[in-house]
């Protein structure tokens, strides 16, 4: 199935290259084209299939995690409401009722972000009751 390259203008140039490099330039056989097309398609389809699997798995995991979060969040909310402490809003976002004692809002925000990162719990699932500045001389308390 190999066809010799026959365009007259290029033939001389190619002949020189062929001589110099000791090679024989050929138009690739139909089989080679098929292999290339098949190869591109196989890679594309395999990776597309992985993409679909990722989407499905992500969806399933997010549904399962959302259900688990809902289950654990309900009893906590009830107990906090009974104790009269500030609680997270129903949509999971903290309603902002945090007692700041000797701490400005900016510092409190930084502290909350650090706690979230270190504990690996998203901010919208954390509920802060109060943030209090420790007095190192008197030995203050933090909640």
């Amino acid at each position: 199935m190999d066809i010799k390259f026959q365009i007259p203008a290029a033939a001389g140039f190619l002949a020189t290259i062929e001589d110099r490099l000791g090679i024989d330039f050929q138009i690739p056989a139909v089989n080679d084209f098929l292999t290339a097309v098949l190869g591109v398609s196989v890679v594309m389809l395999t990776l597309a299939l992985i993409a679909v699997c990722i989407l499905l798995i992500s969806k399933i995991i997010r549904i399962v995690e959302a259900k688990a979060t809902k289950k654990t969040a309900e009893p906590v909310q009830t107990s906090l409401a009974e104790s009269g402490a500030p609680v997270a809003a129903a949509d999971g976002v903290n309603n902002g009722e945090v007692d700041l004692i000797g701490v400005d809002e900016k510092t409190a925000a930084v502290i909350m972000a650090i706690v979230s990162q270190k504990s690996d719990i998203p901010l919208n699932r954390l509920s802060f009751k109060s943030i209090k500045l420790l007095d190192s001389e008197k030995g203050g308390k933090a909640k």
């Binding site: 390259f5 490099l21 090679i23 024989d24 330039f25 050929q26 138009i27 690739p28 056989a29 080679d32 084209f33 292999t35 290339a36 097309v37 190869g39 591109v40 890679v43 594309m44 395999t46 990776l47 597309a48 992985i50 993409a51 679909v52 990722i54 989407l55 992500s58």
Partner: peptide, 26 residues
């Protein structure tokens, strides 16, 4: 962003272009 996988697949184009070129050179 699983769509990235398609970009990773498309960037293998050169593998097959070079394959054809190499076949052309014998």
């Amino acid at each position: 962003n699983p769509i990235s996988l398609l970009l990773g697949a498309a960037a293998q184009l050169g593998v097959y272009v070079a394959f054809l070129l190499a076949r052309s050179f014998g």
